[in-house]
Amino acid sequence: MWKCSVVVGVVLLLASIPLASQSPTFGVGRPPTPEDFRELATAIAPDGTGLPEGSGTVAAGREVFAAQCARCHGQKAEGDIGPILVGGQGTLRTPKPLKTVGSFWPYATTLWDYINRAMPFDKPGLLKSSEVYAAAAYILNLNGIIGEADVMDAKTLPKIRMPNRDGFVSDPRPDVGPKAKKPN
C-alpha cells in the first residue's frame, strides 16, 4: 500500500509538470503557477487594467482609514509619522510646494495600486480589495475630488480626473550647457 501511494504520488507529480514548459533556447524555468502569482502585488495600469472586483464608499473608507491609516497619517490625513495626504492644490509653483495625493498625483489608479501593495506600512497586503477602494475613496473625498456619495470600483476609479493630471512633462535633458535641449 505504501509503495502504491508512492507510485501514484510520482505519477501525479510528473503529470503536474507540463512538458513544453521550459524556455526554448536554454531550457530553463517553467510556466508560472498560481502560487508564483500569489507572491506578486496586482499591478494596476492608469487605464484601470488589473483592478479587481469590489467597491468602496467614502463612509466605509472613513472607517478603514481610522482603523488602519490614521495612526501614521493622522485622523484627517494631515500627516504624522506618515506623509500628509490632503491639501496643497495651487502650491506647486510656489516656493513651498506641497505635494499630496490631491495636489500632485496624476492618476487615481496609482492610489489603489500603492495602498494595495504597500499599505499599511507595517502590514502591507492586509486590506481586502473593497477596503482598498474604500480607503482610496475617502482620501479622494478629503481632497475634494469625489463627492460623499461616490462609490469607487474598477469602472469609476480610472475615470477620475486628478487635479494635476496634466502636470507632468517629459525629460528634456541635457538641460544645461551648450547642448541643452529646449524644455517641452
Binding site: 506647486l92 509653483r93 510646494p97 505635494k99 495625493v101 500632485f104 498625483w105 502636470g167 512633462v169 524644455p183
Partner: peptide
Amino acid sequence: TAKYSDLMPDGKARI
C-alpha cells in the same frame, strides 16, 4: 509619479 519626478518652477514635474 509622486516620487522621483522633478518639480520645475512653473509647477510642472518632469517624469
